[in-house]
Write a protein that binds this DNA or RNA. Sequence first.
DNA 1: TATTTGTTTAACAATTTTGTTAGCACAAAA
DNA 2: TTTTGTGCTAACAAAATTGTTAAACAAATA
Lengths: 214, 214
Amino acid sequence: MLVKERDDNQEVKTKEQQILAAAEQEFLTKGYDGARTTAIAKVAGVTHAMLHYYFRTKEQLFERIVDEKFATMSRSMFAIMGDPKLPIVERIIGGVATHFDFVAENPLLPRFIINEIVARPERYEVFYKRAGVVIETMYRDLQLEIDLAAERGEMEKVDVKMLFISIMSMNVFTFVAYPFMEPLMGELMSDRARFLSQRKAENIETILRRIKKQ
Amino acid sequence: MLVKERDDNQEVKTKEQQILAAAEQEFLTKGYDGARTTAIAKVAGVTHAMLHYYFRTKEQLFERIVDEKFATMSRSMFAIMGDPKLPIVERIIGGVATHFDFVAENPLLPRFIINEIVARPERYEVFYKRAGVVIETMYRDLQLEIDLAAERGEMEKVDVKMLFISIMSMNVFTFVAYPFMEPLMGELMSDRARFLSQRKAENIETILRRIKKQ
DNA sequence: TATTTGTTTAACAATTTTGTTAGCACAAAA
DNA sequence: TTTTGTGCTAACAAAATTGTTAAACAAATA
């Protein structure tokens, strides 16, 4: 009985899915150390024995979440690459916007990933082995395109990696530091949606000015 | 016997100081949940009963560290304000540089603070109450100065708060995301000191272009 | 020297958290 | 109808972690 149905034929989550959903919430907000399997079970609405029945250990449940989160984060980073069909400047600006939206949809992700990597770097060597090569190639291609555009006088000659770090900095910080900044910024951040749209425009403007020929 | 001395008359840390030093390291790297009082005691070279003798609870020991860290972070933020005697553009650029150096000296601080605030926001209402007012006044003054300079055509008219967020974003991200980025960036980040100096220049350049009149 | 005060340790206690197990209930298969 | 397997619960077990205490010891003080 993998998919449960109610009388009215609406699909309902299986217990396993309920546990996964609760675990995602708990791990993303509190991290591995702060998360409690009993709390996860409670939120999921099952006994904690149930949790161990399905996932055996906290560690294994955590891995399920971590794997998915790393995959999501990889996709978000590739979003910065932008649409290869566009001219380079629009491509970069489109990349900033797409990346911003990606992080906006997963605002808890960056802090979670960074904390994880600091806590147990060894664990993610596999991830880096695969990602490193892919990224290096994509960087080379993009750098080539930028250098050509720069020679044509269409933009400033910049280092792709540095540019990427700047883009990630501004987009990620917006969400990671939100809880810290919000009470300090008064009016500006009181309306979250409004602030985010302003911030997105600001990040785009900042990057645009960085790559514009002066 | 508050200050211990050795035969050779060199000063040695008291047990209390040893515990505090070890606790700072443990809490900054692992956070409250990940930290273990036994591990702190071990690093400090004392029994864990000793730790409880001096600080009674993990909570109280943590508060000692947290208070100091929040003070340090406040100072780092005021660094962005720059030197009021300088012309506004130099003042801002100087602020970026000083803030960068500040974070460089406390690379573990931002992640620690953010994690703390996410974990228990209530606890820091006091901090925000005090900081909020001070910051609001300083913002107003700076914004005034910027608006005047903009009217004189010396710089672009920008929102101070947005500018501050951009500055913090780029400077803080450099250090917070370092462990995550380093294995992805190959050559660029293999020499930490070299990378940091390049990154500092890049952050300054980015902010400079943001406020330059076009 | 005797007394007091503060420091240290070892052993223990309490609590929290994770993980296990025996067995019940129920549905599908034989 | 019996059997088999799965989902599930309650109660228990184990481990890790924090916190306490009594007593030994050392240092300062009267």
